[in-house]
């Protein structure tokens, strides 16, 4: 499935000797990895090993304090799911997707929002404020938000958190559909769940 010509152009994400410190506190040290186009990198590690920090670096939400990090493309090409849903709590799901769709210049944002909300089982709750959602519903909305602009690179920080079996099933299907077509970096405590999709693995210590 991997596009040979594109893969030859080099990795989509390349980290060499990455280091991140917050003041005196060192969170990451000497992390190196590469994800080719169409690759699927699974990041594992104990709590506090720096999985979240690493993914925030790749997403551009934080800058490394040492080492080299190259991410091809710009912010338009990146979809990110983090610990927080990154949406407005007092807007409805539809209003959130409309706002972010506009900022991401998604021309058919109405259709795509509708389709994603439908797929993730949020269509009936589309006009409810996010603050009334359960944890699982918020996580589903966060996934809709990340997929809205059909990004070439998906960075997912423990995306299965808080999802029930239904939600996790939908995410499984989405990831299978995207694997090979899109580049994915995913952190998880349950690597078995994405074993079949993974092309690369990174264990943080």
């Amino acid at each position: 499935m991997i596009d040979v010509a594109a893969a030859a152009a080099g990795p989509v994400v390349l980290g060499e000797g990455l280091e991140k410190r917050y003041g005196r506190k060192r969170v990451l040290r000497g992390v190196s990895f590469a994800v080719p186009r169409g690759g699927f990198l699974v990041v594992t590690g104990a709590n506090g090993a720096g999985k979240t920090t690493l993914l925030r670096l790749v997403a551009g939400l934080a800058a490394p304090t040492g080492g080299v990090l190259e991410v091809s493309g710009d912010r338009r090409d990146l979809g990110f799911v983090g610990h927080e849903p990154l949406v407005y709590q007092e807007l409805t799901a539809l209003e959130n997707l409309e706002l972010f769709g506009r900022l991401y210049r998604v021309a058919d944002r109405r259709e795509r929002s509708g389709m994603l909300l439908e797929r993730f089982g949020l269509w009936d709750a589309r006009s409810d404020r996010v603050s009334t959602y359960s944890r699982g519903m918020i996580q589903r909305l966060a996934l809709c938000r990340a997929l809205l602009h059909d990004p070439a690179l998906l960075v997912l920080d423990e995306p299965f958190t808080a999802l029930d079996e239904d939600g996790a099933g939908v995410l499984d299907m989405e990831l299978s559909a995207l694997a090979g077509e899109r580049t994915v970096m995913l952190s998880t405590h349950d690597p078995a769940r994405v074993e079949a999709l993974a092309t690369d693995r990174l264990v943080l210590a």
């Binding site: 939400l61 710009d74 990146l78 927080e84 990154l86 709590q89 007092e90 972010f100 210049r105």
Partner: peptide, 17 residues
């Protein structure tokens, strides 16, 4: 305050605007 809840500010920072 609206941006602090739910990490919406990170959402805006990620957006290509």
């Amino acid at each position: 305050a609206p941006e602090r809840e739910g990490g919406a500010l990170d959402g805006l920072v990620l957006a290509p605007c």
